[in-house]
Design a protein around this nucleic acid. Structure first.
Length: 220
DNA sequence: GTCCAGGGTTCGT
DNA sequence: ACGAACCATGGA
């Protein structure tokens, strides 16, 4: 059986089961989490979100009403708090200006992605997290784990640009209804992160890949 | 003590 | 277009 984007997904799902991403009660909370999780362990992001919720600040207007210093203090556990306070403000200002989730829903996938990328502090991965997990748009999220795992499998070269990789994955997983693809992309990225956390950082790092024969951490 | 996490921007080349 | 420095906490 040839290794494909489909078979890797099946292998991961069989081993780890559903990941129930994205944790969060509302789309807005997911968007906040997407900004806060930039290069940060999720456990630290959760602490920051709890702080915001305790202050009733999981809300764009409430966040904008905070001074940058107050906001930074609340999100302190998520690290890079001064940078992220600024990015969160930038995002909330944009979010309110565009008309919140209704305004976002009025845009097609491409326009919304472009609009998100225009926000200072929202790059490709954060934008795609928001598109997929908060807006239910069929975009495949690429991260460092994706690049590492799939280049070791030989399914990608590894030095492609973010945009190239996204196209490769979306084309490699082209079949299925709109809804099925969203569900698949949702679960797939979550499984890649789960697997990456689990074994791809074992020391010494497996030189081949944790999904391939010969790797001590291979799944079966 | 060291390493690095569910990255992005800015400023060099 | 691409690479490196920068940001900062907390858990393993």
């Amino acid at each position: 059986m040839a290794t494909t984007f489909r078979t890797v997904y099946q292998q991961l799902f069989k081993h780890y089961g559903p990941q129930h991403w994205w944790p969060g009660d509302t789309p807005f909370e997911i968007m906040v989490g997407a900004v806060l999780t930039q290069n940060t362990a999720w456990t630290n992001v959760e602490k920051a979100i709890v702080n915001l919720r305790d202050r009733d600040c999981l809300d764009a207007e409430r966040i904008m009403a905070l001074t940058p210093a107050r906001l930074a203090a609340l999100i302190r556990p998520a690290g890079y708090f001064n940078v992220k306070a600024k990015r969160l403000r930038n995002f909330c200002a944009w979010y309110l200006a565009i008309g919140a989730e209704q305004g976002m829903a009025a845009l097609d996938d491409k326009s919304l992605r472009h609009a998100l990328l225009s926000v200072n502090g929202i790059g490709p991965e954060t934008a795609d997290d928001i598109l997929l997990y908060a807006c239910d748009r069929p975009v495949f999220v690429i991260d460092a784990y994706t690049r590492r795992i799939f280049s070791r499998l030989g399914l990608v070269a590894g030095d492609e640009s973010y945009e190239q990789l996204r196209q490769i994955f979306e084309k490699g997983l082209a079949r299925g209804s709109h809804h099925e693809r969203i569900k698949l992309f949702n679960e797939y990225h979550a499984l890649i992160v789960r697997h990456g956390k689990d074994v791809c950082k074992t020391k010494p790092r497996c030189a081949s890949c944790c999904l391939r024969k010969g790797c001590p951490a291979r799944l079966d």
